[in-house]
Nucleic acid binder design. Structure first.
Length: 587
RNA sequence: CGCGGGGUGGAGCAGCCCGGUAGCUCGCGAGGCUCAUAACCUCGAGGUCCUAGGUUCAAAUCCUAGCCCCGCAACCA
């Protein structure tokens, strides 16, 4: 076993202005959990962090339309995320949010540091101003007539009709969404900008280093941008009241722009985690190269986030100095549904909460991994979901477990005798499954969960073939010792497959672990906690791995170990699930 | 306009970097088994590898042009 490595797993920060759907899960939330569980099983120390992104105009727009406060909107969706992740088994060492004192402090410190080092400059921008409301209007607060297609329902930055983008100041007949005022002014406003042009050489140098393990969509995009384009400064402040304030006098009416503070969350969350554990400097083992140069940082995101994680955030880290840069950014493409993007406003959505109420967490984990959009957009359909669960997961793996344990239970009273000498077929199966710890492990490690799934399924099928060929239901009548050996070998194979499946199917692997007569937990414990700080209190989701017993190596199944009474691991889905769900959708 | 990803039997994907008789899962057809949640095992049918050129003895794989889908395109990360 290799020596322990520190691995930071950053997960895209969900925006606290709406529910998440299964596309988010398949793209950016499940893959890091599978990766992290595997890494922990091989003995690496994982720090998996994320949190709700609480700032930005969509939150304030929503709050205003509901007549509530941004904090209330955040609270509602943040709590929802925590509940869903708990159910789905996403093992965040810390899932927090960005409206904490700690995050404010860290963000302001980074802002000051960037400014001291000359990576931040001031400039002015033209922006629409609503004299009635006495405030500048972010694009989200403006509607008007599209300058290209003359559609009267154009949004501030983009037209839904012709999908062209433009500056809000180009809109014809702009009107304020706050007051309805149509006599808006264009005013100059001063903002701070991150000087990406100045950081470009550093960024370029970093991107040119060995990155063959990066996915082509991420690597080609960011390299091309940095090598062929001139990066311009990007504003990092806005005229808002909701957000992190600027640590300078004279800018009380402005806030840090949400994109800048959100990515800093990966760093601030590690610090919060260390503080909560009463080991305030422990974060350095993942973040500070002078403390630990071998640490690796992975960022799991959707493709829309590539520029921010493969360019902006690295640039910010380079400017800050003394922090680890990303080792890999395994961005996924999109999961669509029946050929269209998920859309809350059009009711074209499967929310995680609903999904988990009606179907097993591991069923989702399996199905969403099997169709993970690793290379291109992928389409979700309910028929496909049912087929995956019933005909692959349940028929191949669930049934293998059920037939073997059922046989052991009925013919050997739940206790498997000592095996006799192994023949070539016995040995071949054990060798093959044992080799899975290498082949499957390599795939998990390379962030290819879909291929890992296929490989484990193949091994599970081998076990089915083995069982079929050995015909223990016949040999039990003629040569009970031979049947006992077959069952022993099959159970040993299942015991290993349980571990190979565990990163994808943690809940049912745990069930199987217990059915096989083991005690203890393969993985650690998830729990929530309420944290108080100067900005109020917030709920966090946490994970304690200290009692986990699951190890990535072939276990030795003891003969005569008392099996527990077998029960099916998976619920078979009705054929009419697709119809039911479609009706639910239309209801 | 530009940049990146994708376009492979009915469905979903792998192969493409490092050219050499097209592979996997599901579905479909036939047979077998009966331990198992009618699950499991075996065999089979089914493909202009987006289009048009080019390079080569040979191209899904390399080159050129075009078409289609998705994301980014400085402010909804």
């Amino acid at each position: 076993m290799s020596q322990s490595r520190k691995i930071l797993v950053g997960v895209a920060w969900p925006y606290a202005n709406g529910e998440q759907h299964i596309g988010h899960i398949a793209g950016a939330y499940l893959p890091p959990d599978i990766f992290s569980r595997y890494q922990r099983m091989i003995g690496n120390e994982v720090l998996m962090v994320s949190g709700s992104d609480t700032h930005g105009t969509p939150v304030t727009v929503r709050a205003e339309s509901e007549g509530s406060s941004p904090a209330a909107v955040v609270e509602r969706f943040h709590t929802g995320f925590v509940e869903s992740y708990l159910k789905l088994g996403l093992t965040f060492d810390l899932f927090t949010h960005t409206d904490t004192q700690n995050h404010w402090d860290v963000t302001q410190k980074m802002f000051s540091q960037h400014r001291d080092k000359g990576y931040i400059y001031n400039d002015t921008q033209q922006q629409l101003y609503d004299p009635q409301a006495q405030r500048f209007l972010p694009d989200r607060y403006v509607e008007g007539t599209c300058p290209f297609c003359a559609s009267p329902e154009a949004r501030g930055d983009q037209c839904d009709n012709c999908s062209r983008t433009y500056e809000a100041t180009e809109l014809k007949q702009p009107r304020s969404r706050i007051t309805g005022n149509t006599s808006l002014e264009v005013r100059e406003t001063e903002h701070f900008f991150l000087d990406l042009g100045k950081l470009q050489p550093l960024l370029k140098e970093w991107l040119q280093k060995e990155k063959s393990h990066w996915r082509p969509n991420v690597l080609n995009f960011s390299r091309t941008q940095v090598e062929q384009e001139t990066l311009h400064g990007r504003p990092i402040t806005r005229d808002l009241e909701w957000g992190i304030s600027i640590p300078l006098e004279g800018y009380e009416d402005k806030r840090i722009y949400v994109w800048y503070d959100a990515v800093i969350g990966y760093f601030s969350a590690a610090i919060e985690w260390a503080t909560l554990n009463d080991t305030p400097d422990k974060w350095r083992e993942w973040w500070d190269p002078s403390v630990n140069p071998d640490a690796r940082a992975y960022y799991f995101i959707g493709k829309d986030n590539i520029p921010f994680h493969a360019m902006m955030w690295p640039a910010m880290l380079l400017g800050y100095e003394g922090l680890n840069l990303p080792y890999d950014v395994p961005a996924n493409e999109y999961l669509n549904m029946y050929g269209r993007k998920f859309s809350k406003s059009r009711g074209h959505i499967i929310s995680i909460q609903g999904a988990l109420e009606r179907y097993q967490a591991d069923a989702w984990r399996y199905a969403l991994t099997a169709i993970a959009p690793e290379a291109s957009d992928v389409d979700f359909t309910w028929d496909d979901f049912v087929e995956r669960v019933n005909n692959e997961l349940l028929a191949n793996w669930g049934n293998l477990v059920n037939r073997v344990l059922g046989f052991a239970n009925s013919r050997f009273k739940g206790s498997i005798p000592e095996p006799g000498p192994l023949d070539a077929k016995d040995q071949a199966l054990l060798d093959e499954v044992k080799a899975g710890f290498q082949s499957v492990g390599d795939l998990y490690n390379a962030v290819k969960p879909k291929m890992a799934l296929n490989e484990v399924r193949r091994l599970s099928q081998q076990a089915n073939q083995y069982f079929h060929e050995k015909e223990p239901w016949k040999t039990i009548k003629t040569d009970p010792q031979l049947a006992a050996t077959t069952i022993y070998v099959a159970v040993q194979a299942i015991d290993w497959l349980k571990l190979l499946w565990a990163p994808i199917l943690p809940h049912t692997s745990q069930q199987l672990h217990e059915l096989l007569g083991y005690d203890g937990q393969l993985f650690g414990r998830q729990y929530t906690e309420t944290v108080e700080d100067a900005r109020g209190s917030h709920v966090v989701l946490r994970y304690d791995h200290s009692q986990a017993a699951g190890v990535w190596e072939p276990s030795t199944f003891q003969a005569n170990q008392a099996l527990r009474k077998p029960a099916p691991l998976f619920v078979k889905l009705d054929d009419d699930v697709a119809e039911q769900e479609t009706e639910r959708q239309n209801a």
